[in-house]
Design a protein around this nucleic acid. Sequence first.
DNA 1: CAAGACTCCTGTCAGC
DNA 2: TGCTGACAGGAGTCTT
Length: 272
Amino acid sequence: MPELPEVETVKTYVYERVLHKKIKNIKVLDKKLRWPIDTKKIGNTKSKTIKLVTRRGKYILLQFDEPMLTIVIHLGMTGIIYFRKISEYKKRKHDHLVLYFDEYVLVYNDVRKFGSIHVTNEPSNMFLLKGLGPEPMSEGFNTDYLFDKANRRTCSVKELIMNQKVVVGIGNIYAAEALFLSKIHPSSSANKISKKKYEILVKNIKQVLSKAISMGGSTIKDFVNAEGKPGYFTQELLVYKKKYCPIHKKNLISNIKISGRSSFFCDKCQKL
DNA sequence: CAAGACTCCTGTCAGC
DNA sequence: TGCTGACAGGAGTCTT
């Protein structure tokens, strides 16, 4: 499911509910995720108060009173976080972790178990966070930076911008959208695209992500609440899973595989 | 370092 | 209705 805008929305949702709240109890219902949940380490967060809720790339960080003690959550493809009143909470299929607060529980649920939950004392050095590229909305992600990264690679431009070591937060959907807006073919070799094109691409990445973030309040909440509604940004999408190009209206959107992932584009707008 | 294949897991949907 | 195979918004690991 989640790329940067979705994770940002979930982060805000969690932030509003758990900031300054103390974890009263913890239940690990199913430790099997991408890496098994370390029951003992997660237990260390009991009786601790959440001081900060932040996001780094597609990771959500719950930071505690105790210096540096942090829960790191990745939603994988199907991870969701939802809240219930304690009295109304009934275990659902694929619930993995339950954090008990005064009146509410926070539940991590993940059908495909591609997500992960870690506890670390040193988030900046934690193996999953250490090598991450810059945030796409930051100044560090700019034309010069991306052009420099691209020049040393032969992979496709789509793989380049989806590589979390190059820039964080972009997944299959927003990669397709940003490339369409920039009129760049997703299969183009990263090192054969002009600097001018990268300038346009950087601008469009920032634009499409910030627009998606700004719309994060609507249907994503239902998704967060595990109500099973589809992603909120779907009505705004231009090429992802679309049949026709919004510009060349009779032209069918192409769908090819690039390193195993569906890649949608318009062959009239986006030439190789 | 870079690139490619492989892997984890469950649910859904199209086609027969 | 049931079976089968393809596919799903991710990313680490292993090998070359």
